[in-house]
Design a protein around this nucleic acid. Structure first.
Lengths: 336, 336
DNA sequence: CGGCCAAGGTATAACGTTGTATCTGATGTC
DNA sequence: GACATCAGATACAACGTTATACCTTGGCCG
């Protein structure tokens, strides 16, 4: 029951010094072809794999990137993850994902642990209510950080969405179709993206001279959207269209209509946000605000790579547009 | 622009030695209350956070667990992840997730990187076609490993499913309802779980004296299931029921029926496998073989914890049952 | 008042790697 | 044959921690 093979194990097996082994494995220094072959053979034979933390400690390099999400279960995020990892892996990095599941305390633990294990960089979708002490900690470690969706600090790079404008487009579309009673569905926390979306929704209503905004909070998930829609139909039958805080809520709302033997795009028009894969697949297919999660993930990765290669540059803040994808859940309201 | 604070930064700030700081932070040794307070204050003031890799290197401890999945985008896996992390976090570990997206090469990279960064343990859902060299490496590092679903080596702990028996139950149910032409839908690779499921399906058919098995491979996703079902209805209209390699395929198949203005549980009965959250939510709700992903995740975590506390014990192999959950996509076949 | 002890702190050697400075022969040159 | 040259290898220090052995100092007892 030998122990984990280390550099000295390989050195002994090949009959050279540890320095030589290190040089061979890293391809540095001047080593003759035959010793190199001997060393490589020995390394393979004992199944050697370097201890990355010792190597990183000594060399100061770190090719591991942390990706902290507020909610991994949402397929939108899963697609973002794919984009991020594809791009970063292509650049020779390794991405590991931590899910804080919208719990600030868990998020704090995750972030602290990431810093402790000295990841080389961080892509972060902050949960609501991030602890400011954690933020200070993060800043003090001078870790390259890109936040996404929810901006928490000026000095981190950030990629956000033009939420208000997007919601404006959604409301405009519904008004053009003839809707006058439009509600907003989804979300429970005061996170910035939701607040911006609600603001965009409200000001679009105002621009069209429609009544006061009606916001119905619910959990950002299918069950959340489902029960919110059921309740909405009971209590506010005059509402003929809803815009949602996310596709999960929107798809849930569509399911809710189905439960009542109603059809999205008939009794109630529904617009989502995210354009998850299921949006196009659902029947009826979901009209939604698209932000192309996969390429968005790649974009995030690019930002982090840029930051890694120039750590002194000023923080970059970007805002992306979401475009309205017309599908089958929006149509003129039924005549009364 | 100071650098990352380290032990010596804190020591200087508090006017003590690094050894003292370390002892205070770890709560070991004999330190007076007042120096302790001074050190803690200094640590907070400079936003100190220990370099985990140096600490781990020195102490040999490692509380980080790697979770390597073959396919994170599948919500079933996302739910397993939740269960795993909840349990392991409760035990003071940190879980980071790597997605190999069914690519053996990517999986190999992920595993090597995990070993290199010296995770304390590994929970692994192997992709198909894992490189045997990678396996050797894994074994040589004497890393505690629990595999799930797909067993790749005798010497790792393993949690699997009684796939064949489960499929037997599904076929029995369909036969009881009166179906005679039952197809198997889903999967493309020769991974063990699928092979076992097909075997269980085939032998159940045989036990009932029904015809030869009909297996229709497709990608394990909603689009995969959708197009497979469309094709099946074209080419094999005599089939009145399908059992699927997973809920994603099954839900996709249901969508496919919807596209043809047909209804799951009428023209064709459908049974899934996994019981993802969407299965109960879909309309009609999906009959499926349930393995309760969240508690399964917790179970995997328990196994790993047991292994961590006794690394010498013989490998444990477990097999769990999947129970048939009757919902609305199964019913007697339509009379001809 | 010498000696002993405990409390409180520090010096130092690891952990496994890498980078640099250094050593050792062999070869070539005049 | 003396000396520079250079390829090829090695010794050694360092990375930021932690564990251990070791120092101080003051108090107390005989």
């Amino acid at each position: 029951m030998a122990n984990r093979p280390k550099l000295s194990t390989v050195a002994a097996a090949a009959g050279v010094s540890t320095a030589t082994v290190s040089q061979v494995l890293r391809g540095t220094g001047r080593i003759s072809a035959q010793t190199r072959d001997r060393v490589l053979a020995a390394a393979r034979q004992v199944n050697y794999l370097p201890d990355g933390r010792a190597a990183a400690l000594r060399s100061g390099e770190n090719r591991e990137i942390g990706l902290v999400l507020h909610h991994l279960a949402n397929p939108f995020n899963a697609e973002v993850v794919s984009g991020v990892s594809d791009r970063l892996e292509r650049a020779g990095h390794l991405v590991s994902v931590l899910d804080s599941r919208d719990d600030a305390e868990r998020e704090g633990r995750n972030l602290r642990a990431l810093i402790a294990s000295m990841r080389g960089g961080l892509i972060w979708v902050p949960a609501s209510g991030t602890d400011p002490a954690t933020l200070d900690l993060l800043v003090a470690q001078r870790l390259p950080v890109v936040t996404f969706l929810h901006r928490v600090a000026e000095r981190f790079d950030h990629v956000g969405l033009r939420n208000a404008a997007a919601l404006g487009r959604a409301v405009d579309h519904l008004v053009e179709l003839g809707h006058r009673r439009i509600a907003f569905l989804g979300g429970t926390t005061p996170r910035a993206p939701r607040a911006e979306r609600i603001a965009g929704y409200a000001s679009a209503l105002a621009a069209h001279g429609l009544g006061a905004p009606q916001v119905f909070p619910c959990e950002d998930s299918k069950p959340g959207g489902l029960s919110a829609m059921l309740k909405l139909r009971e209590t506010h039958p005059e509402v003929t269209a809803v815009v949602c805080n996310g596709d999960m809520v929107a798809l849930g709302a569509c399911l809710g209509l189905g439960r009542r033997a109603e059809t999205p795009g008939r009794e109630v028009s529904v617009i989502g946000f995210d354009d998850v894969a299921d949006a196009a697949l659902a029947t009826p297919a979901l009209t939604t605000l698209s932000i192309a999660p996969y390429s968005l993930g790649q974009h995030l990765a690019e930002r982090l790579l840029a930051r890694l290669s120039d750590r002194a540059a000023a923080p970059v803040h970007q805002e992306l547009d979401a475009s309205l994808i017309l599908r089958d859940t929006t149509a003129p309201p039924l005549p009364r």
